[in-house]
Design a protein around this nucleic acid. Sequence first.
RNA 1: GCGCAGGUGGUAGAGCGGCCAAUUACACGACGCUGUAAACGUCGCGCCCUUUCGGGCUACGGGGGUUCGAAUCCCUCCCUGCGCA
Length: 344
Amino acid sequence: MSITKPLPKILVIVGPTASGKTALAIKLAFRLGSTLLTTSRSGQAKKFSYKGAEIVSADSRQVYRGMDIGTAKPVRSNFQLSISNFQKYSRKSPLYISGGIFHHLIDIKNPDEDYAVAEYKRDAVSAIRGILRRGKLPILVGGTGLYVRAVVDNLDIPKVAADEKLRRRLEKEVRNRGLEYVSKKLVALDPEAAYIVDPKNPRRVVRALEVTLTTGKPFTAQRTRSAPLFDARIIGMKVPPATLRRRIEKRVDEMLRDGLVEEVRGLYKKYGKVKALDAIGYREIIEYLEGKIPLDEAIRQMKLNTWRYARRQMTWFRKSKNIRWTTSASVAQHTNILKYVGML
RNA sequence: GCGCAGGUGGUAGAGCGGCCAAUUACACGACGCUGUAAACGUCGCGCCCUUUCGGGCUACGGGGGUUCGAAUCCCUCCCUGCGCA
């Protein structure tokens, strides 16, 4: 038995859209920061080993610049940083600050750039390590279940980048010879795939084949999981369905008022129908801009699709056994959460 | 008032004598998914019983008929849309 160093703790906040994840994260981060000031002013010893917190976003659409209103990005504040502070943080991309707290992995790509889980995992892990190095608590916040899981469960994503040409070829094969045929082809090359890859899901079958064909090794042997990198303490936001639904509808209305149509018009003009814009709020408004549906119909669909997305998110997180659910975010709850991550 | 077309499950909309608890789509519900993940996919969806197979009950505007058998045919009533008055 070797003595292993305890894993660094991180706080993870998950939950459906519009459940208030980011707001909670900012409050917690802010509280850690202010607690520090109090203790140092009184000259007492530090009560905890972190000097605050920084947020790491786990949101597949907020990574894109310009997709602001429709993704409900936290409002960016123009915070004047002192030179020394600025140098302490990343030089790679401009800092994203909201509510006085640093947010990582927001606005890091243009909508026409590819970005996927593997890249996300790499970036998130490095962001978290940076935060830990600075002696702060990393708070991973997001609704993209796969992204969160990639980091928390330390998934080994096969290092095969998307090969558009190959994908197109395989998709064509699915159309011409049928999905069943292509699925069988996969199983012939990777027998394990028979009970791991859903043979009825073209996208998953194509990806598995993509990995198998380009590496010459079975896909299923490559999607493994390594020992955890962090001691993740996960908080789940639980909101009563009726409340969540109301919030979603209200938020969609606000997005429209804030100029979503103009935002989408600009992005669509500049980038066309790129993958990043295949997102709720953008899809529907594009339909409207193309004259396919009236605006009120686009809004109706946005509300509905957001709601259904929220449902799917809840399904995704529900099955995680180690989530500690919280219904409200009172000060007492904050204290409990911080105790949970060993911050108090 | 006359003529024509209709009234089917949460909605739209098929079925037009037995294979119909009723095609399909949407909504709704449950679930899956390791490089598109706000993506992609699967299952369920009248009620009741049954582990499975299956069985029972109530249903296609109301009522009444024809028939071994009706959502489907006939009569009648009510309602809706269009045309003519």
